[in-house]
């Protein structure tokens, strides 16, 4: 499942010409990765890793990947904001979202 999503996202990045679609591709890949990280830490019938006041939890899922995912979501947010603001500016200057037409740099 994750790898299917991952490949869809990669296809989207590599094959599409529209800037916005490329950004969507990156988002898909990121989410595939987050899902993958969560699944690494999952155990069958596991519970949320919260230490509660009055009960002992024996079968916890691994909390570390969840911490990693929450961090990588934030990073993803930052990257997406940067990319989208770049895309808006590019549209302003070039008047198009098509990367085959944005070719002022060569060589």
């Amino acid at each position: 499942m994750c790898f299917v999503l991952f490949s869809i996202g990669l296809y989207c990045i590599l094959r599409k010409r529209n800037i916005i679609k490329i950004i969507i591709g990156i988002v898909i890949v990121e989410y595939a990765l987050n899902l993958f990280l969560i699944l690494i830490g999952y155990r069958i019938h596991g519970r949320a890793p919260i230490v509660a006041q009055d009960q002992e939890i024996l079968n916890m899922v691994d909390p570390l990947p969840q911490a990693m995912v929450s961090t990588s979501i934030v990073i993803g947010l930052a990257i997406i904001v940067v990319l989208i603001s770049l895309a808006i500016r590019i549209y302003e200057k070039y008047g198009t979202f098509d990367i085959t037409k944005i070719r002022r740099l060569k060589g």
Binding site: I26, V29, V82, L83, L86, R89, I90, K93, Y94, L105
Partner: peptide
């Protein structure tokens, strides 16, 4: 325009 294009390219490659 050139800066933006280069930065976009760089950002895509970097995030991959």
């Amino acid at each position: 325009p050139e800066d933006l294009e280069a930065s976009f390219k760089y950002a895509i490659m970097g995030s991959i």
